[in-house]
Design a protein around this nucleic acid. Sequence first.
DNA 1: CTGAAAGCGCTTACAG
DNA 2: CTGAAAGCGCTTACAG
Lengths: 348, 348
Amino acid sequence: MKSEKPNLSAIAQALGVSVATVSNALSGKGRVSSELAERIRDTAHSLGYVPSVAGRALRTGRSGVLGLVLPDIANPLFPQIAQAIEHAASAAGYGVLIGDSRGAVEQQTQAILRLIDRGVDGIIIIPRRGTRIADIGCPVAVIDTPATPGNTVASDHWAGGEEMGRHLRVLGHRSVLILAGSALSNVQNDRVGGLRAGLGPDVRADVLWLERHAEAEGAEAPLGLAARVRQGVTAFAALSDLTAVRALTELQAAGIAVPAAASVTGFDDLIWSSVITPSLTTLRMDMGEIARQAVQALAAVIEDLPHGQVTALGTVVAERAAVPMKLMLRQSSGPCPAERELLNGDEQ
Amino acid sequence: MKSEKPNLSAIAQALGVSVATVSNALSGKGRVSSELAERIRDTAHSLGYVPSVAGRALRTGRSGVLGLVLPDIANPLFPQIAQAIEHAASAAGYGVLIGDSRGAVEQQTQAILRLIDRGVDGIIIIPRRGTRIADIGCPVAVIDTPATPGNTVASDHWAGGEEMGRHLRVLGHRSVLILAGSALSNVQNDRVGGLRAGLGPDVRADVLWLERHAEAEGAEAPLGLAARVRQGVTAFAALSDLTAVRALTELQAAGIAVPAAASVTGFDDLIWSSVITPSLTTLRMDMGEIARQAVQALAAVIEDLPHGQVTALGTVVAERAAVPMKLMLRQSSGPCPAERELLNGDEQ
DNA sequence: CTGAAAGCGCTTACAG
DNA sequence: CTGAAAGCGCTTACAG
């Protein structure tokens, strides 16, 4: 019976061989005759042997765990990210430890330190806007924009914005309001730049920075989009789906039909983007690919490093990549309304 | 200089004492003179000593890590949950390892097994609907409904539903459509039951099960809510904010004013619930409290268990609790429109 | 109050 | 191809 959980020597004893041999057989380093190796694997399996991560970690100096640090777990994009990273890490044989750097910037450092203290082999970090990740004494992969200096894996936010801009231009829109969050965000700046490029020189593109608006009017104050429509704006390009629903509902509540009277587009393809009415035209990141690249880069560095030094001095993963985004064409974007008279009664 | 990361014997050497004494001093078990203990703590600090989790884990049989298993990380509620758990765990000295049981039911078991293999001391699990967590050989805390048998920590979904039902009844609504997901979900059944109780016998309350609707019509098919309004429904009580935005936008797109012509309410208080127009009346769980209770219950069991047996046989945390939900009164719910003529032009 | 020693489970040179 | 031994860093009886 296999009551207590078996270790290497239990297997060794059962077969009358040494633990070294069992270890070698199980790790498949080929120092054991294939016949013996097979017998060892069999009894290991039948005994329900599971290697002790603690024992291995102590010996090798590697924990087999990656840390995941996000600026704010409450970010609605977090589920996608976490799921993708967990999946990629799991496939590469790593576990994923959550680190939350909620709130202030220094919390980010705190979170990183806590993870390092917990012995993670590497860290994947989505930095707070305006933050630069310093040399933190362990391999790091940053997910941000390709424009970020350092070891970054990212979506090509600029190209995504450009594609969205082209989409709106082709639909005939000539006055677009870009709904952006914070001017400090690299990602958002890339998206704005791409949008402008895609819209081209003939399309008017103003930017409404929500952060500034919130400071002036309060976080939940209406964005005054109906007035913009009256001024001739026919499309609202939000830099996140979150902002896009906000805009969409504000327009709808003001009696402005979407997309008939005004188009709305987003970024992210959050889960509800396809079920709202009208469904949201948006850009989807390939989080699976991004996660895979980040994990692989990290794993490569970790597995090359001489053992004692894994967490010694800030090793940096150099693996810049710009993963394409995918335009999800749905119903919230349509042709520019030919005539202005389409806007009927709206107030405020 | 503190180049290589210091361990206990480095401290011991620096002070000319034994590692045992250093260990005792640092763990504060009081077997060391307070004067020596202080000197030890000082040099430990100045050397930048951080205990090796691997060493400790190997010795004590405890990893100091909790696993978090969710039916689907992509759940929009996940950020709230993960953040709360991470926070509570961190405060209790534990790390949190992510486990994703995406997709099929058996994946849930897989995820649990993987976490156990990674040596977690306990698991917090939000089970898939219709799933019962068996005895899995390690302490478990389940977050579901109070109605779930076993060691559960949960929001009081029934009472929450009841409060929402009362809210709608007091507003004068007499025909309510409940928008539910799956009839297999304990949580959803509790919410439906509570809603019905709160609405009382005089209010007509039908249920639209989205899962069934999706099977028949497709996942993104319109819910036909405008027709319901024509049939006299004046309030839509969704069991999630996700469904609530879906309903809200469908109504608005059909030209039905919310809340003037129909009220819409949700559950969860997701991040965008307060910024859409109209902002969403919804119920908020106290995830902080739930997380705290789950972590505490788990920690209590873990820290009481004789060492070798921590992961031996399925230990169960018995800590049933029903944490109150908080009604967030916002603009999407209002008085029942006195007269039917409020509904103007709508189609389909 | 302090120290010497054993051992958690593993891997890796080193011998044979 | 196989085995004996050392050691990763820690904690915990057990002596003194």
